[in-house]
Design a protein around this nucleic acid. Sequence first.
DNA 1: TGAACTAGCTTAGATACTAAGCGAATTCAG
DNA 2: CTGAATTCGCTTAGTATCTAAGCTAGTTCA
Lengths: 179, 179
Amino acid sequence: MSDAAGDSTQLAEEIVGSLARRHSTATVLFHHAVADLLGLGPTDHKCLDLLRERGLMTGSELAAITGLTTGAITGVVTRLDRAGYVRREPDQHDRRKQVLHLVPEGMRDLHAVFDPLREDAATLLEGFDTHQLAAIAEFLARSTDFAYRRATLLRAQLLAAGGRTRPVARTIAPTEEEA
Amino acid sequence: MSDAAGDSTQLAEEIVGSLARRHSTATVLFHHAVADLLGLGPTDHKCLDLLRERGLMTGSELAAITGLTTGAITGVVTRLDRAGYVRREPDQHDRRKQVLHLVPEGMRDLHAVFDPLREDAATLLEGFDTHQLAAIAEFLARSTDFAYRRATLLRAQLLAAGGRTRPVARTIAPTEEEA
DNA sequence: TGAACTAGCTTAGATACTAAGCGAATTCAG
DNA sequence: CTGAATTCGCTTAGTATCTAAGCTAGTTCA
């Protein structure tokens, strides 16, 4: 039992210490490449993903989640609209709001691009038993939640600190240089 | 047995179909937030991650991996240098090359920012047994590899197709609009 | 009714990207 | 050994996308 526990902590160390970060870096890179392929730019792609995931949303909600300004969101939505992925629709109850809808045809086009990729991704899961697959699913769900909460927290932290653009690390150990 | 197999395929479906993508979106968002906190911008942060992960590298290698132009890499490295994370050093054997080194002090500062986060992330792994942790580790490693290879492939595909900026999806189902 | 607030758009300015091209160093063919 | 072709990283010009600030229209509340 102590042996297994030792293995566990060692595995856990490796996952949070290096595997997760490597995976994160690769994911960002991949995300960027997909965006390029779609002709969207990473921000637009990210916002489209968020919309697909969370369903109907207004621009300011999207701004709050992504940390972008409302001005930037205007640009994002305009581009997504023009590219045929998203449509603006006035809210019934509050006519200031623009509810963002996904365009079914655009989604079909997206699926045409992603489906072959998904088939390929399925090989990633070969060889795992049900018990392990459940663990992977649970881990992904937890990490997703964690990332969202952390991102929100980090942004709040940055905002509270004055929203400066220079590294926080620098404030700990200031050096001679300051352009 | 057929019951367990059914559960497995169902779980696998859910993982590649929705959980992985949600996780990916959250990861990108989180990455961006961390970059903001470091005062770096997502691209700089991504490049720094790649350097930490893969060790010594020249600018053009970094350009090849990220899909950025060498001109953009010049800017990235200049910013990372000025922020104290990276140092340029001429290659002994080929004096055209600039080998990129990590600056130990900058790395310490980074750890100061990340360590509290990592402790928190460890709770993500509570409740999994060794067998499951091994699966998670293996899955992360496979996905990372998959993402890198796919990103490279996608970029090659885009380049071969003429490197246009408009959505590929549009070329499948062209509509009336073409600004 | 009018003051304060909110949603989203617009503008000006900053920043980071691409594409093209340069000089210097290296490699390779003859 | 010499000159052409290639490669490396940087520079420049142009474009795109972001922030910050301010605006208008719609909503809420005293």
